[in-house]
Amino acid sequence: MTRWALLLAALLPAVAAAQPQADPDWPCVQRLVPHLAAGVLWPGVPEGDWRAEPDVAALVARIAPRGVEEATGLAAIRDFAAPMGAPARRRLLPLAFTGTLAETNRQRDAIIEQLRRFARRQRDLAEQVRGLEAELRTAPAEAREELTQRHFFAAKSYTDAERTLRYACEAPVRLEARLGAYARALRAAMPPE
């Protein structure tokens, strides 16, 4: 073995230990980010209870649901901020961001848990398919027809579910992108200091 190969072999365990462990229940290509932090999208940490402000709570309820298109939410933010004076904007827009972030994280948590359940189900189905394949190899001729059908339907269920995986994995990404657009719109509506 060359000196470089020995060095690489010695370093690999340390490099592997430094890498974050993959979540076996995370089926998506995208890196799992369990929780979105305010500091990534907003300067400083907005303080206050967004639910205590009825207008802010109403805005968040209007723009945060998953089915709301980004353009609709951006228009609602503009309509919300337009009539306000500078002091109200400084106080309420950070709260609107906090509320939108909280609701986005709540929705993402639910989606992430659904994706994890999906991954566990797919692993179970894959195991079932492998088990049926093993049974088929050793089954007597009279049992093959039923086993073949069971194998076909299990494999089809697995394949059909895999086809939807890419779309399902985009759901958290779409929520993150929409939150980023909302944060930019809310920051743009903030008055200069």
Score class of each variant (00 low, 15 high):
Ala126Pro: 07
Pro54Cys: 07
Ala16Asp: 15
Arg31Phe: 09
Ala82His: 15
Arg66Gly: 05
Ala110Pro: 00
Ala102Trp: 00
Thr100Arg: 01
Tyr182Ser: 09
Arg116Leu: 01
Asp124Ser: 13
Ala58Lys: 08
Ala64Arg: 00
Ala168Lys: 00
Arg166Ser: 01
Leu74Ala: 07
Ala5Phe: 13
Ala61Trp: 04
Glu127Cys: 10
Ala10Gly: 14
Glu70Met: 11
Asp109Leu: 04
Gln107Ala: 03
Pro87Lys: 04
Val15Pro: 11
Gln21Arg: 15
Thr98Ile: 04
Ile77Arg: 05
Thr138Pro: 10
Ala161Thr: 03
Arg123Ser: 10
Leu36Gln: 09
Arg174Glu: 05
Leu95Met: 07
Val40His: 14
Arg3Asn: 15
Leu115Val: 00
Ala161Ser: 06
Phe80Met: 09
Gln128Trp: 11
Leu32Ala: 02
Leu101Ser: 06
Arg150Ser: 01
Tyr158Trp: 03
Arg137Thr: 12
Leu12Arg: 15
Leu8Val: 13
Ala37Gln: 14
Arg144Ala: 06
Ala10Asn: 13
Trp26Gly: 02
Pro140Ala: 12
Gln30Tyr: 10
Ala102Thr: 05
Glu113Phe: 02
Glu53Gln: 10
Leu7Phe: 15
Gly73Asp: 02
Thr148Met: 02
Gly180Cys: 13
Pro87His: 04
Glu193Gly: 10
Val45Ile: 14
Ala17His: 15
Ala82Gln: 14
Tyr167Asn: 01
Arg178Ala: 06
Val56Asp: 02
Arg137Gly: 11
Ala76Met: 08
Ala64Ile: 03
Ala141Gly: 07
Phe118Arg: 05
Asp79Thr: 11
Thr100Phe: 01
Tyr182Glu: 10
Asp124Ala: 13
Pro43Gly: 08
Asp23Glu: 09
Ala58Gly: 08
Pro94Ile: 06
Ala96Lys: 02
